[in-house]
Design a protein around this nucleic acid. Sequence first.
DNA 1: ATGTCATATTGGTGCGTACCAATTACATCA
DNA 2: TGATGTAATTGGTACGCACCAATATGACAT
Lengths: 254, 254
Amino acid sequence: MNETAPSTSSDTAEGEVPGSQRPKHARLRQRLRAEVQRMTAHTALPTERELAGQYGVSRSTVRQALDALAESGVVYRVHGAGTFAASTVVAKNLTMSSFTEDMEARGLVPGNRILAADEREAGRQIAEELRLGESDPVVRVMRLRLADEWPMCLETVHLPAARVPGLLERDLNDSLYRILRAEYGMRLVRAEQVWTAVSLDERSAVLLGVPTGSPAFQVRRVGMDERSRPLEVTTGLYRADRYEMRVAVRRGLE
Amino acid sequence: MNETAPSTSSDTAEGEVPGSQRPKHARLRQRLRAEVQRMTAHTALPTERELAGQYGVSRSTVRQALDALAESGVVYRVHGAGTFAASTVVAKNLTMSSFTEDMEARGLVPGNRILAADEREAGRQIAEELRLGESDPVVRVMRLRLADEWPMCLETVHLPAARVPGLLERDLNDSLYRILRAEYGMRLVRAEQVWTAVSLDERSAVLLGVPTGSPAFQVRRVGMDERSRPLEVTTGLYRADRYEMRVAVRRGLE
DNA sequence: ATGTCATATTGGTGCGTACCAATTACATCA
DNA sequence: TGATGTAATTGGTACGCACCAATATGACAT
């Protein structure tokens, strides 16, 4: 699909399909990734020069696409030898997906139980993380998150109240992040997370439906927009028996 | 340190320091990262064209360096506006560093207590992860890892015995990974990790010096070389009160 | 003041070229 | 048969150009 069609004069022919307006390297990356994931591990891809020919793009563009795939561990390159499909045990690199997306990807039905939703003063730590004053108002939403009606996670979200007027009147049972994006134009692009292992106190344990003292992940996250301005601070408690964290790690560049 | 010294003619003058034979984009990236980390957050860097001029490289090379820095969250870019120092709370992206390196970076003295070191059959799971036969021999090393004499982590390493002849006769109190690299040419470049939260059983708790049932991280890691061949399988138990995991996450590319 | 528009600036895309460096394949020789 | 050297192949580096797209700036009008 979506052939090159060098047709008329040079590049930006007027009869352009609107949907194909993503950069070539991005489209190529997507196609190659799909292709690679159907290959058996350690199979060689065509050479960069061949790919350039096959897809009607320059070698630089091919390399741009392959760079990204190598970065995320989908392929690996060996200098004089070629580019190969990686043996992808984990495959899915750690990406930022919302709880709702996570559950839907697993074929589970996500659900929520709102435990609290109010407005309060930020306080020292939240204020610092959100770059607000200590007495600035923040919206706090505490939710018990369910998958197929089973408790998975206890979550508290803090948002600058000034940026989300009327949020508390909304239906918070939908994906909060979809609301933030669609209604308030808050696009979370990056996040910094700190994971710790904890034992659950009685109150949390009861809510999550496990014995007091059961192990759990505690995750503190600061979500940021594309300009790395903090938009949101969230603390989550995840049942250890239902959750694990998979990470692909690479040796640092130096 | 390591100044540019534009001295003689162009770039690759014959009196070149051997160590500076790294690619220009890598050297530039290193310099820029150092520079950026001294800047206050959200300060603009020089434009790409300026940087190209200042450092005597092409704009493509500058972009290659900035791409990497943006990828790891050190800087962020805004299309028509510029490139800016990110507000780096975490700074250090999750990279693959050995326990020894980790502790040294924190100014602690790493130590080991060997609990077991032997050779045995791989067994089903290890064999699968290392791509061996079930009855192929693997070397197993169990260690209690210390920081300033304090127990931090209980670790079990599995290695294909065929690749590490004589390892058991060596001094395993040194960094195991340094031995593997220096003596056996095994270079760990990538790893896939699965983190879970657990409660410590009595034996592990005693060794780590905490009460039975204390929370801990359990980490299972498969370490791989640059051709994504598994070299090592390690299971670690980390004291939750001494360890946390920091991760910078980005929205997936699609 | 406030909105609007043209313009300059800045990062983003894409192409092409030339050459270097690691690997592989193959012919050659001992 | 096995080692050795040579040439072709393949990814890596670096440069330069041309143009696009988002943003910022400032003149101007309201």
